[in-house]
């Protein structure tokens, strides 16, 4: 049915964010962000606390309004099209409590009625998010992970064209996190839903999303596919090391260093990007030996988004 040639030529943006700004009294939360999200794309907004992720996502959701700039969803602005757009969007907020004394099924039924959906859809969702054995439990008695899954279920009720999830896995243990991921993977296989997901977890962005936007201080630092981001400077591996306790960055003459070193804020550990492990490691080690530098810790690995973030901001994403 689809005309293959047109599909590849014009990929349709479902969400367009154009030069958006938003400030609160003294805080510039979002400063000039541009974003395009395509149909079926899974996009991660990755950034530390206070980066402006929630603010940006809530502006796309129509919950907050930008100070300036445009947000266009499926060709429509929020103003005047709210009811229509609410039907296209599914979302979970960073923190929401539902009605404590309603049970899971009643809560889903309530939200289903807002979208004119029948009870069959409610049962489908209960299955999908794996809350079958909890469907008559009061929301107040759910565990944190179960509550997150309920929130996800509500977001998925209306088969949204665009799904916006604000930190859907924060506070979950690794297993629970993987369960959420697998629900989203299935969604990706079975539908054309676009996803915008915010997270602190780089693995989440790496595993789940095909486009990653790194954001800090309300600005986009870097964006692209995982490969694009990591291969940009063609150095995709690195050495991470920590100096021996009695040594410090100030003891070193780092003009003589064979490679540029990215130091952490304490000047105790650093990382070096490598082009070729086989050739570069011996060079590095002999430099250490020459200058009598002791190491406490030394590892060589593939670069991660966290390393990329450190190289851009000097801070880690989390922990």
């Amino acid at each position: 049915m689809n005309n293959h040639s047109t599909q590849t030529v014009t990929r349709e943006a479902v969400v367009e964010v154009r030069n958006v700004y938003k400030s609160f009294k003294t805080v510039k939360a979002v400063q000039g962000v541009n974003l395009l999200i395509y149909s079926g794309q899974f996009l991660a907004l990755l950034g530390p606390n206070g980066a402006g992720k929630t603010t940006l996502v809530e502006m796309i959701e129509g919950i907050q309004t930008p100070d300036s700039g445009d947000i266009v969803i499926m060709g429509k602005h929020w103003k005047g099209h709210a009811d229509e757009l609410h039907r296209l969007i599914g979302l979970s907020l960073q923190e929401t409590r539902f009605i404590d004394k309603l049970n899971v099924r009643e809560t889903l039924k309530l939200f289903a009625s807002f979208y004119d959906l029948n009870h069959q859809r409610v049962e489908e969702i209960i299955d999908m998010v794996g809350l079958k054995d909890k469907c008559t439990a009061y929301v107040v008695n759910l565990s944190g992970g179960q509550r997150q899954r309920l929130a996800l279920g509500i977001a998925l009720l209306n088969n949204p064209k665009i799904l916006l999830l604000d930190e859907p896995t924060t506070g979950l243990d690794p297993n629970a996190r993987r369960e959420v991921w697998s629900i989203l993977f299935k969604l990706k296989e079975q539908s054309e839903t676009s996803l915008i997901l915010t997270t602190h977890y780089m693995e989440e962005a790496e595993q789940l999303c095909d486009y990653i936007v790194i954001i800090d201080n309300g600005q986009i630092l870097k964006e692209g596919t995982l490969d694009q981001l990591l291969n940009e400077d063609r150095a995709e591996k690195l050495i991470a090391f920590t100096l021996e306790d009695d040594q410090h960055i100030s003891n070193l003459d780092y003009s003589e260093m064979p490679f540029p070193v990215q130091w952490d804020t304490f000047g105790k550990s650093g990382s070096v990007a490598l082009n070729q492990i086989e050739a570069d490691i011996p060079t590095f080690l002999s430099f250490l030996k020459q200058h009598n530098i002791g190491l406490k810790n030394f590892e060589c690995r593939r670069k991660t988004l966290d390393d990329l973030f450190v190289s851009m901001t000097g801070r880690r994403l989390n922990g």
Binding site: I63, I89, L91, T96, Y115
Partner: peptide, 9 residues
């Protein structure tokens, strides 16, 4: 919860 509810139709 209020903002979550009004983010629906």
């Amino acid at each position: 919860l209020l903002r979550r509810m009004v983010a629906t139709p």
